[in-house]
Design a protein around this nucleic acid. Structure first.
Length: 262
DNA sequence: ATGGCATATCCTATATGA
């Protein structure tokens, strides 16, 4: 079973790119972020014709998340992160898909920092940590997948120097991510590639893609019940090299079905 | 310290992203 996360940076302009990736890599479940589209603009028909069932939560211009499945229907568990009824940003979707609880999240960027956007990021992170606590020891297999907007360590970026003041590298952001992991989550990419620089995002500036000057900010975290099923993890970097690509590449894990059911 | 680029929208401009 292959579960992927992909920040598409606009579902409307990225649809051909997305369909090409889905057809070629055939993930069983795909979590999408940054739809940048209202619910009514989600391409549910095009995806259905390509064989994908969708659950989505849109928003005008910004944010927006979706969970796609080519197996069973994604069964909605919740469509917002608990803890702030006034938060109207579409950044969280949780569903049961083929026996796995899949949480698709788009953690706030937080720039510029310091400032209200960074405060919102840290507050959102605390809400995520509180909710994740209820999932990590679950008897069900759970994966937290998405764009966390955190570069966990200096090893997860081509060169931290020019990003030192960025919200993605701040000690508070990293401390929150480390505290989340410490609950018992397995960072799948790092677990299987401990000594390898792995990137999932290359910005559009200064030929960063051509120079492989990237960041690792898209993560898949497995709870204790699911971690033993982990077999492979990777990044479909070829997608980043396409015309009109998103600045993120799809990131994925492959899980042993028998170990999920066990 | 700034800007480089890409996207969406109330689009000869502005906000957001990371």
């Amino acid at each position: 079973m292959k579960i992927a996360t992909f920040n598409v940076n606009g579902i409307k302009t990225r649809l051909p790119n997305l369909l090409e990736w889905l057809a070629r890599e055939q993930p069983d479940v795909a979590c999408l972020q940054e739809l940048k589209a209202l619910d009514a603009a989600f391409p549910v028909d095009e995806l259905r014709e390509a064989g994908w069932r969708s659950l989505w939560k849109g928003q005008r211009s910004w944010n927006g998340v979706a969970i796609l499945s080519r197996g069973g229907e994604p069964l909605e568990i919740r469509r917002e992160l608990p803890g702030d009824a006034a938060d109207e940003q579409s950044r969280y979707l949780e569903a049961a898909v083929d026996g796995v609880v899949v949480a698709c999240l788009y953690l706030p960027n937080g720039n510029p920092q310091p400032g209200p956007k960074f405060d919102y990021k840290l507050a959102w992170f605390e809400r995520l940590i509180a909710h994740a606590r209820t999932l990590v020891e679950s008897e069900h297999p759970v994966v937290l997948a998405g764009d966390f907007n955190v570069v966990p360590t200096d090893f997860d970026i081509y060169n931290p120097r020019s990003w030192k003041k960025d919200a993605l590298l701040q000690p508070q952001s990293r401390e929150a991510y480390a505290r989340l992991l410490a609950q018992g989550w397995t960072d799948a990419l790092r677990q299987l590639h401990p000594d390898e620089a792995v990137f999932t995002f290359w910005d559009y500036f200064r030929q960063h893609w051509q120079r492989n000057a990237g960041l690792r900010i898209d993560h898949l975290l497995l709870n204790r019940r699911l971690a033993p099923a982990l077999r492979e993890a990777g990044v479909d970097t070829w997608v980043r090299g396409k015309e009109r690509a998103s600045d993120h590449a799809p990131t994925w894990v492959r899980l042993e079905p028998a170990a999920i059911r066990a």
